[in-house]
């Protein structure tokens, strides 16, 4: 009995701590502090408990207790729905929206992290039960490091070369180098673009990168992150200053133009470099024979 309690406690503690470590409250400020953080810690605790009780239950020959884990699946799917609904609703009040693809990616991450918590607490409780609490905790830490290592996605810098580019007008048409962005009629708006507009070009490193950058949701995510980090020179009544990311169909190159509050171009390039490649945008035609043959 003593052993069971110890196993469960170790599993729950490691699982909940791992949920805390997995939260990235950086510039995104998401999950927001303090209440959303508490919500996710509490869900992490539930996940950890489910993972931790599995091993003692099996040891006690209570095999049906393991069906509890199916509860977890339902529970965490709800987490995904909750996150998706909330972020979609809040997207309306953003000057530059995240877009459905980015939101889906975030929601999916929140769901998956709960399963990872189950994995960490299961590993911890297994090693605690068989060997000792110390080994259990070590195994939990190892599991967590493993999770962090393998759950890290790609960034834009892994799929494309980002560089600063010149923003200019041909008549009323706005261009970043040779990429047409949009038609702008008003001289007042054009003047602001000429003075404060900043452009970047994303050159895909290979065919995989080209297809990733072709994804509209991915491009919206780039615009959102850039606008969030550098500020955006617009309000609700100046739709002209919505950052736009457009693709040159001939080359697969993508150009973005933005009027940031902070005009530092190096920061803009760095911001774009650090945008995550969305799971839904990630494709790799080069992994297929057809893709490789077509690539040359």
């Amino acid at each position: 009995m003593q052993k069971d309690i110890l196993t469960i406690i170790c599993g729950v503690v490691m699982g909940t701590l791992s949920r805390y470590w997995m939260m990235r409250r950086d510039f995104r400020q998401y999950p927001s502090y303090p209440h959303a953080t508490v919500t996710h810690l509490a869900l992490g605790f539930v996940a950890a408990t489910l993972g931790a009780v599995a091993i003692p239950a099996i040891a006690a020959k209570e095999y049906t207790a393991v069906t509890f884990l199916t509860l977890a699946a339902t529970q965490f799917r709800d987490v995904r729905n909750m996150e998706r609904e909330m972020l979609t609703a809040l997207d309306q009040s953003k000057l530059v929206s995240r877009g459905a693809d980015f939101i889906e990616g975030i929601a999916r991450t929140f769901e998956a992290r709960n399963y990872l918590v189950v994995f960490v607490s299961l590993t911890t409780s297994l090693f605690t039960f068989i060997f000792s609490p110390l080994l259990g905790i070590l195994a939990g830490v190892f599991a967590l490091l493993l999770v962090r290592r393998f759950m890290r996605g790609y960034l834009i810098r892994d799929v494309a070369k980002v560089r600063a580019a010149k923003v200019h007008f041909k008549g009323p048409n706005l261009f970043v180098e040779d990429i047409h962005i949009m038609n702008l009629g008003l001289p007042e708006i054009k003047k602001i673009y000429e003075e404060r507009g900043r452009g970047v070009i994303l050159e895909p490193l290979d065919d995989n990168g080209r297809e990733i950058l072709a994804n509209v949701g991915q491009r919206q995510a780039i615009a959102h992150d850039a606008a969030m980090l550098l500020g955006i020179h617009r309000d609700v009544d100046t739709a002209e200053f919505t950052p736009l990311v457009r693709r040159k169909a001939d080359t697969g190159r993508v150009g973005m133009v933005i009027v940031p509050i902070e005009p530092d171009i190096e920061c803009l390039v760095a911001a774009v470099n650090n945008v995550p490649v969305l799971e839904s945008a990630f494709v790799s035609p080069l992994q297929s024979r057809i893709g490789r043959i077509a690539a040359d």
């Binding site: 009323p172 949009m182 702008l184 009629g185 008003l186 708006i189 609700v236 739709a239 002209e240």
Partner: peptide, 20 residues
């Protein structure tokens, strides 16, 4: 024309495009 287009685009939260 430009002045009217500016005012309209602000009021309608829309963008004025020049058809040239």
């Amino acid at each position: 024309m430009i002045k009217m287009a500016t005012i309209l685009s602000r009021i309608l939260e829309a963008v004025a495009h020049d058809m040239e």
